[in-house]
Simulated assay, not measured.
Amino acid sequence: MTSDPYEEFALPDTELAVAALRYAEELTEPFVFRHSVRGYLYGRALGERRGLRPGHDYDDELMFVATVLHDIGLSEEGNGDQRFEADGADLAERFLREHGMAEDRVSVVWDAIALHTSAGLARRKGPEVALCHAGIGVDITGRDREELPEGFADRVHAAFPRENLAYALTDAIVAQALDNPLKGSPLTFPGELLRRHVPPGTMPDWYDLIGRAGWGDRPTAGG
Rank of each mutant, 00 (worst) to 15 (best):
P5L: 06
W206P: 06
P219K: 11
D4A: 09
P219T: 10
L194T: 12
R218I: 03
A166M: 01
N180F: 00
A175C: 02
S75M: 08
P30F: 14
D208P: 04
T188Y: 11
R83D: 05
R94F: 05
E61I: 01
S118N: 05
A172E: 13
D104N: 09
I136K: 05
R123N: 10
D57Q: 07
R53L: 15
P186D: 14
P181T: 09
D71K: 02
H99A: 04
Y23H: 15
T28L: 15
V198P: 06
D104W: 07
G216K: 02
Q176D: 02
H35L: 15
L46N: 00
R38I: 13
Y6S: 01
G214T: 06
R162H: 01
R83L: 09
G184D: 01
T202A: 12
F189H: 15
G216I: 12
Y42K: 13
H116T: 15
A177H: 01
R105L: 12
E29G: 03
N79Q: 11
G47S: 05
R22W: 01
L193W: 08
P219S: 12
E147C: 03
G216F: 04
R124C: 09
Y6T: 02
L187F: 10
R83H: 13
D104Y: 01
T141L: 09
V68W: 03
D60S: 06
E26M: 11
D217W: 15
P54W: 06
